[in-house]
């Protein structure tokens, strides 16, 4: 199943920043045990937007959590920027997250009592780092919140809140940014804007992104799309149109139905 993983991707990338080696994840024990991942190996290339697709329950979220060090695999190892994260303790993982990892969630998860700008600066402030004002201004301009800096989350629309979350995840210039259904909670117009924003960060800053999505349109923006089914990596497409992605999804679903 791991064959052709790298050669299938277009050659924009230079080196892998995340690599997973034969990871499995089992929930529970005995009879009722669920194998959410049953041996997945992959590499995420620097400067690429990688999307992960698959039917509900196929293990996408589980995979992403493990790649990001939020969960531990039952077996196998994960390396981020050359560090084996499966052996790290909580504190080391936290420090790794600070330095290398950004998150975008389906629910925006902003702190209600902080302003948009304060939310964006939160990871830096937790790490005790001084913000690079030029970069922060550029970022806020890029996500289109220049006139919303002092607003509280409750005063922002869903799309605006997700932009705050994106800016927050980019502010530390993480090695890799993980997004679990970042547009899952938004209407299609807003979704498109958010996807363009993610795409833009890859093109303009060489940001590496891994994005879980159900939306073929979203996958079409990606440099590469990996398909999960029943805990296994079953397909790995390069840049594809949304109809190609849909066709691949259909294949997978019919294969599963058989």
């Amino acid at each position: 199943m791991a064959d052709g993983l790298t050669n299938a991707a277009p050659a924009v990338s230079t080196r892998p920043v995340v690599s997973a080696m034969s990871i499995t994840r089992r929930y529970g024990e005995g009879e009722s045990a669920v194998d959410a991942l049953r041996g997945v190996a992959l590499e995420v290339m620097s400067g690429e937007l990688t999307s992960v697709m698959g039917p509900s329950g196929s293990g996408k979220s589980t995979l992403m959590h493990i790649l990001a060090g939020l969960d531990r695999p039952t077996q196998g190892t994960v390396e981020i920027a050359g560090n084996d994260i499966t052996q790290m303790n909580d504190n080391e993982l936290t420090l790794l997250r600070r330095e290398h990892i950004g998150f975008i969630f389906q629910f925006f998860n902003l702190l209600p009592m902080l302003s948009a700008e304060e939310n964006i600066l939160l990871p830096l402030s937790l790490a005790g780092e001084k913000p690079d004002t030029e970069w922060v201004d550029e970022l806020i301009g890029k996500v289109g919140l220049a006139d919303r800096r002092e607003h509280r989350p409750s005063e922002l629309s869903g799309g605006q809140q997700q932009r705050v979350a994106i800016a927050r995840s980019l502010v530390t210039r993480p090695t890799v940014l993980f997004a679990d259904e970042p547009t899952g909670n938004l209407d299609s117009t807003t979704s498109d804007e958010i996807l363009q924003l993610l795409r833009g960060s890859v093109d303009d800053y060489g940001q590496t992104i891994v994005m879980v999505t159900h939306d073929a349109g979203a996958a079409a923006v990606a440099d590469r799309t990996m398909f999960l089914a029943d805990g296994l990596l079953v397909k790995d497409l390069g840049r594809s149109s949304s109809s190609q992605v849909l066709a691949a999804m259909n294949d997978i679903q019919t294969a599963a139905a058989r």
Partner: peptide, 16 residues
């Protein structure tokens, strides 16, 4: 709870 999860995800240590 969820807010604390987010804070931890974006780099808050247990000590913090």
């Amino acid at each position: 709870t969820r807010e604390l999860g987010m804070l931890r995800a974006v780099g808050m240590t247990r000590r913090q």
